[in-house]
Amino acid sequence: MAAWIQRNKFSVILGVVVLVLAYIYYFSDKTTALSMYRYAWTYAVPLVLCALVGVIGERSGVVNIGIEGQLLVSAFAGFFGAAYSGSLIVGILSGVGCGLILGGFLAWTTVKWRMDQIIAGVVLNIVATGITSFYYKPGQLLPALMPHWSIPGLSSIPLIGEVFFKGTGVIALIAIIAVFGIHFGLFKTTWGLRTRAIGEYPSAADTAGINVITMRLVNVTLAGALAGLAGVFLSMDSTSSFERGMSAGRGFLALAIMIFGAWRPLRAAAAALFFGFVTAAASQLQADQVINVPPQLVGTLPYVLTLVVLAVAAGRVRAPGAVGQPFVKEGK
């Protein structure tokens, strides 16, 4: 533990400072602080999930530009699945299923067919837009609202419990578990060691007897489930409707967050919360008339923030060595 703190000194100090500031604000203005924090977390949930999709993909050596499309189709499938079947469960399952299918599509085209990963992702996004805008039917309603619970005990912790565990939906909880689970998996388990190896130096993994192709296929496909959950969260949890193009670039924000988080799940989650908080703060300031900027321009804040973050982060963090390159076995 001491060694871990020593190694991550900067992150630990920053984390403590942020937490202290958050509590100071919380105790000075409980209602506003809580509503801002909750807004930030709600905003961050799909970003966290999508950033994890990006992390798993790139740690395995596959760039996933198609997260945006996975998100959009899953939101679509989740909403209309639930609306037509009258069952939330069916909606969630069809959303997650679509995430998996599109993940599998991306994996197959880039890993098996060695299609350019960027082009494959962009194609996936355009296909997603085409499908969802053609089959979109206005005027549908969800059969019910997604259930929200409070976790006994945890939810009574001031601030942290109130934001993360009070009146929370299943997907937000899964997001929390996934961040810690994938972080642990990536750095502490055999799966993680191998995943990092195939993304960093695939031929070394190959000569050590690891099946690079299969592992990339499985990782990228299964990560699609998380994008599916994020989509379901968008259309069924944080709102209860589907709109054309409702993913609104979140898949790309998630990639920026992944880079900002240096391809590490915990840092990426922190970065997503930062994005959420900035957005929440901006709309709060707007509502309080502290700043007077047209709402259309305030709406572009996350995108501007992404450009700034990328310009700052690029060059300071190092991407997995083999990301973007198909693995080719000679003579097979």
Partner: peptide, 17 residues
């Protein structure tokens, strides 16, 4: 910074403007 992300972000910013 990779141009795919920046150009997409610039699309969204342009739409707002």
């Amino acid at each position: 910074v990779h141009e795919v992300i920046t150009t997409i972000m610039l699309n969204n910013i342009a739409a707002g403007i």
